[in-house]
């Protein structure tokens, strides 16, 4: 259906060209804007590469918490499962059902950690390596 080079290849070359051909010629507000564009393209490129399959680590962590069957039945469509499970867990946490586990290692903490890590792998993988907040940020 789609022609080549693929969207992944186009995003990768866009990022590279912006970095090497455009960025060095800029300063001030334009450079700041270009750095944000670069950041956004990087997120989009990583998401295209990751595809639409729900992340395995999160599903496994949810299976440890709620059981494999319940994870399977959380959505007719695989893509619905994690948002549905998140809603369910968020409600339980707010109702205080997991208060005794605050800060404790265990299945709830593992789900939350898996959720955050999967999101950071896409939005800012450097944070996982160096714990460094993304820049530029709101100033």
């Amino acid at each position: 259906m789609f022609d080549e080079p693929s969207r992944a290849a186009l995003l990768a070359v866009t990022e590279e060209s912006l970095k090497t051909d455009v960025l060095p010629a800029l300063d001030g507000a334009a450079k700041y804007a270009a750095l944000m564009v670069l950041n956004a393209i990087g997120i989009a490129r990583r998401e295209v590469a990751a595809g639409y399959e729900p992340p395995r680590h999160v599903l496994d962590a949810y299976a440890d918490l709620y059981g494999q069957d319940n994870v399977y039945h959380a959505g007719f469509d695989a893509a619905e499962r994690i948002p549905n499970l998140n809603r369910h867990l968020a409600r339980e946490i707010r109702d205080g059902e997991h208060d005794d586990e605050l800060g404790e290692p265990g299945p709830v903490y593992d789900v939350l950690r898996a959720l955050v890590i999967e999101r950071l792998k896409l939005s800012n993988p450097r944070f996982l390596v160096e714990s460094e907040y993304s820049q530029p940020s709101r100033g």
Partner: peptide, 12 residues
């Protein structure tokens, strides 16, 4: 969307 991590933080 639901935000279970922030809900957890709020309980803390």
């Amino acid at each position: 969307d639901a935000h279970p991590v922030l809900e957890y933080g709020i309980r803390w």
